[in-house]
């Protein structure tokens, strides 16, 4: 484990924990942005430039802003939220989380995927990603596009109904 990775991982984990435990929603949202940036830097550290930058562009630039906007528009963001960060059944939660983690870790460690040496990854250019998206992954791409269009139409319909009701 390289020191850079250790720092990035620690930052990501710390900000994720902070996002769960802050009492003000906006603080949680801001530390979630920090988590997203931490993930992006881990991608960049792993030489996955495109994914890392898209992570920043989409998650920090769009998703986080959307979350923040939603908080601003729906409730008084300056007050502390009344929800306690640690629920009463936190022990059960911890047990479930531990069990899930153990199962996953056992499955991953037991699989043969780890024995193989990682293939020497070729330089992944944007052009290659584009070609793959347009040939091999064209159906998933189209499905995602359809889903997003449906969501957008839904949003428009909700907005229109509000206007009619007025």
């Amino acid at each position: 484990m390289s020191p850079v990775f250790a720092i990035l991982a620690a930052m990501t984990l710390a900000s994720a924990i902070a996002a769960m435990s802050f009492r003000k929603l906006v603080h949680s949202a801001l530390s979630m942005i920090l988590t997203f940036s931490g993930l992006a830097s881990i991608y960049l550290h792993l030489n996955a430039q495109f994914v890392g930058l898209v992570q920043v562009l989409v998650y920090v630039g769009a998703v986080a802003i959307l979350v923040v906007f939603a908080i601003l528009l729906t409730r008084d963001s300056t007050r502390d939220s009344s929800v306690r960060s640690l629920a009463k059944s936190w022990l059960t939660g911890l047990l479930v989380a531990g069990a899930v983690f153990g199962t996953l870790a056992a499955a991953i460690l037991g699989s043969r995927a780890l024995d193989r040496a990682a293939p020497q990854a070729a330089e992944i250019t944007v052009k290659k990603i584009g070609e793959q998206l347009m040939t091999r992954y064209v159906i998933p791409l189209e499905v995602v596009a359809l889903l997003l269009t449906a969501a957008m139409i839904g949003a428009v319909i909700i907005a229109m109904r509000e206007k009619e009701g007025k």
């Binding site: 801001l30 940036s37 430039q49 920043v56 562009l57 630039g61 802003i65 923040v68």
Partner: peptide
């Protein structure tokens, strides 16, 4: 991915 980098960090300014 210079262009992408530019827009990615530009998006962070909104925060």
């Amino acid at each position: 991915a210079g262009v992408l980098f530019f827009f990615a960090v530009g998006a962070a300014a909104e925060v």
